[in-house]
Write a protein that binds this DNA or RNA. Structure first.
Length: 779
DNA sequence: ATAGGGTTAG
């Protein structure tokens, strides 16, 4: 596009020969040198040519009755450097002053329209050109078709193109770059072929506008053909063509070619550097990206541009290299680039990926211009770091600020709903996505499916899954995982077999989904079968995560010794998570000896998590070794591990009510207490006995009962009973795993209240009905 | 010619 304007610039008639408008009489100073171009005219020309648009404008404003040529010059300057809207303002002022635009004015105006993606305005300008009888002008019609194509109206662009009596290479390039701009790969290639059939050979502009689509479509072979053509036509030495080729190879993941082109370039400009650094990022070579950045800054003494900073920050984010990221932040501040929205967005994402949400949020506050990307970055950052509630709050801020959420915002927000089991919010996101047409996007549907599954509405998940137009492996994985966490192993396996039959290749996550389904449902045989055959039959080699699933499966099913020998036979060193899976089963099975051994292993490996201390101390309590339990809790305190409080929440008509253990802060606290005591009496009548294993001290039976009665999930359920209709099911979500006592108590509660009660804990759904949980006590 | 945010599991 820019090249095509450049060629036209050369053909602009010399202003000296242009007819001049008569000057106003009242400016003697200007009139004085009437015969020659005035010094002010020359100044405007000089500044405009140097892209010093504001200076040019300053001078221009002092000229009383500028000629069309000068108007054109100013309009072109803005259309080139922006602010684009200024071109349009000047055009309107020109009309007010009854200066008639000529055939050179329109291409510049239309270029501004393309940049602004303002098709309505483009149409008005089109009409104006028609009334001036310029429809046959080659430049004007080329500019018109270019504008329509860039704004996405290919029909109009095509109509103009077809109606042209004469087409030069610029017209061809215009329509080609329009299609290429919108990533219509096949149509673009077809046009290039037609162009050649029409006897016009593609020039370097054609190549340059062609290459981005080729890269985008990963069409390496075509790219090579174009490369060869560029060599034959000796375009390939051109920096612009070479950069395009470099970028194309990088997008096709052909790094070595990209590097060769980069190294062979004699004069590298900043765009080459950014293309190469960006190329490394595309190809997942983050270390190389950072090394090249350092070479550029510290060896070649170049200043990073916003584009380069954005790419390099992305590399830091992927590596979670906080030091380098902070270093870049310093660069931004020093070079005054910290008000650039794009760079700022990358910076937010970098801090979020490194887990420093405070800095990410702080920077968001400082940002002068926040766009949907800024909000999306922060929202997904919050969710990734476990602050789903903050994510929802930020989303409210985003709405108040008038920034329209886009599909990426939804992809960030939907997991927040999943995490919170906030069904009402989730439904809103779903509805909004449908209205905005996002549901054509596979990732959006995937996030929606996951949201319904995690909010307890697994049948709606399946409904969405069945109706989406294109499923990828993630869609299948999410659906299988969904069935798995609901304990619906029959559905999970039937879907898995459907997947195998469909010809789509399962990936490593699919197998994690299958294995964890097995462990949730106690399917030891099936789990072993898929674990043993996955590497041969599906050519997926098991990772640590798969081993964790297997240990979990064996140990939960009670085969503690087998789990132990399985760990010993692992081809790599087991990490803390493997041992934790075993420890947790030791606790469930009250196996103190093995628990102690495992606990020692964990202490050697470190760093540990609080959960393991709690497991071990509970294990001691369950067999009455209160002193040992207390000793473990002391170590935990000394080493600075805080027990994260058990927390449960429930959504009632779109509002989330959260409770921690022993919580008496809710406004309805008195009613909740009464309800709990009432339930306790009824439960005991039916044979309920408090499970002492989870109470740390050797206390009286009654006291135990009362401590256990105020576990957060019980409070949330009581609150749910009080605030929903008697026949309604209840869904409560808990941040940790449900404890044995609550699991037992909820069974009684379903009998007393004749309701379905669902508890989603950290690992799965427990659907309680008629005194039974569908997990069959595997968890 | 180059650039920002994004779905699953462990």
């Amino acid at each position: 596009m820019r090249r095509y304007l450049r060629s036209k610039e050369a053909s602009i008639p010399n202003p000296k020969n242009q007819p001049r408008l008569p000057h106003t009489q009242n400016n003697r100073h200007y009139q004085h040198m009437n015969n020659q171009p005035h010094i002010l005219d020359n100044l405007v020309r000089l500044y405009a040519a140097r892209n010093q648009t504001e200076l040019a404008r300053h001078v221009f404003d002092q000229i009383p009755n500028p000629s069309v040529v000068l108007w054109n010059m100013m309009i072109r300057a803005y259309a080139w450097t922006g602010p684009f809207l200024q071109s349009i303002h000047l055009y309107h002022r020109m009309l007010q002053l009854r200066v008639t635009p000529n055939n050179f004015t329109f291409p510049f105006l239309l270029k501004a329209c393309s940049a602004l993606q303002a098709i309505q305005l483009g149409r008005q300008i089109h009409d104006h050109a028609l009334t001036l009888g310029l429809q046959a002008d080659l430049y004007v019609s080329t500019a018109l078709l270019d504008m329509y194509a860039k704004c996405g109206n290919f029909f109009e662009a095509r109509t103009i193109f077809d109606s042209m009596s004469h087409r030069d290479i610029v017209s061809w390039n215009a329509i080609i770059s329009g299609f290429s701009f919108h990533a219509f790969h096949k149509q673009t290639i077809r046009l290039v072929v037609q162009m050649q059939l029409a006897g016009i050979a593609p020039n370097s502009s054609t190549i340059v506008s062609l290459l981005p689509t080729v890269g985008h479509a990963n069409a390496l072979c075509q790219g090579k053909v174009i490369h060869a053509y560029s060599v034959r036509r000796i375009f390939s030495h051109d920096v612009v063509v070479a950069t395009g080729l470099l970028d194309m190879y990088a997008k096709c993941h052909h790094l070595s070619y990209a590097q060769k082109i980069f190294n062979a370039l004699n004069q590298k400009n900043e765009i080459c550097w950014s293309a190469m650094i960006g190329g490394y990022v595309i190809c997942d070579s983050m270390r190389d990206a950072l090394a090249l950045y350092d070479a550029m800054v510290y060896m070649h003494g170049l200043n990073p541009t916003p584009v380069i900073l954005a790419s390099t920050l992305r590399a830091c984010a992927k590596l979670t290299d906080l030091n380098k990221g902070k270093n870049l932040h310093c660069h931004m501040i020093k070079s005054g680039i910290n008000s650039d929205t794009t760079v700022g967005n990358s910076l937010i994402s970098m801090y979020a990926k490194c887990g420093i949400m405070d800095d990410a949020l702080g920077f968001l506050d400082e940002m002068i211009i926040k766009d949907s990307v800024s909000y999306s970055a922060i929202i997904s950052g919050c969710v990734q770091n476990g602050y789903a509630e903050t994510a929802v709050l930020i989303f409210r801020q985003m709405q108040l600020s008038g920034t329209d959420p886009d599909s990426a915002t939804m992809i960030g927000l939907l997991p927040a709903c999943s995490h919170l089991a906030a069904l009402q919010h989730g439904i809103c996101c779903h509805g909004y996505s449908v209205v905005r047409g996002f549901t054509a996007n596979t990732s959006i549907c995937n996030a929606i499916i996951d949201m319904y599954a995690k909010c307890g509405k697994i049948h709606i998940s399946r409904h969405v899954f069945d109706r989406m137009n294109k499923r990828d492996i993630v869609s299948w994985n999410i659906m299988i995982i969904g069935y798995g966490i609901h304990g619906l192993y029959v559905e999970a396996f039937s879907l898995f077999h459907e997947l195998l039959a469909s010809g789509m290749k399962p990936d490593d996550v699919t197998l994690i989904a299958v294995l964890s389904t097995c462990s949730h449902s106690g399917l030891v045989m099936e789990g072993k079968y898929w674990f043993n055959t996955m590497s041969q039959d599906l050519s997926i080699s098991p990772r640590m995560a798969h081993y964790i699933c297997m240990v979990d499966l064996l140990a939960r099913a009670g085969n503690l010794d087998e789990a132990c020998s399985f760990i010993q036979k692992m081809p790599f060193e087991p990490d803390v998570r493997v041992w934790s899976a075993l420890l947790s089963a030791c606790r469930t099975r009250n196996n103190v000896e093995m628990g102690e051994q495992v606990s020692k292993k964990i202490q050697l490996l470190g760093p540990e998590s609080t959960g393991n201390f709690v497991l071990m101390s509970n294990l001691y309590s369950s067999v009455g070794r209160w002193d040992d339990a207390a000793y473990i809790r002391n170590i935990q305190k000394h080493q600075g591990y805080k027990k994260s409080p058990g927390c449960s929440w429930i959504e009632i008509s779109g509002v989330i009510h959260g409770f921690i253990g022993g919580d008496r802060s809710h406004p309805q606290s008195v009613a909740i207490n009464n309800k709990l005591q009432e339930l306790l009496v009824q439960m005991k009548k039916m044979g309920y006995q408090a499970d002492s294993g989870f109470v740390f001290h050797d206390v009286e039976e009654e006291e135990k009962e009362q401590i256990l009665l105020y576990h957060s999930e019980k409070i949330a359920i009581a609150f749910g009973i009080l605030n929903t209709r008697p026949s309604n099911p209840i869904l409560v979500t808990k941040n940790l795993r449900i404890c044995v006592d609550c699991h037992n108590a909820v069974k009684f509660m379903t009998l007393i209240t004749e309701r379905k009660i669902t508890v989603r804990d950290a690992s799965r759904f427990h659907h309680f009905e008629n005194g039974i949980c569908n997990c069959r006590d595997f968890w």
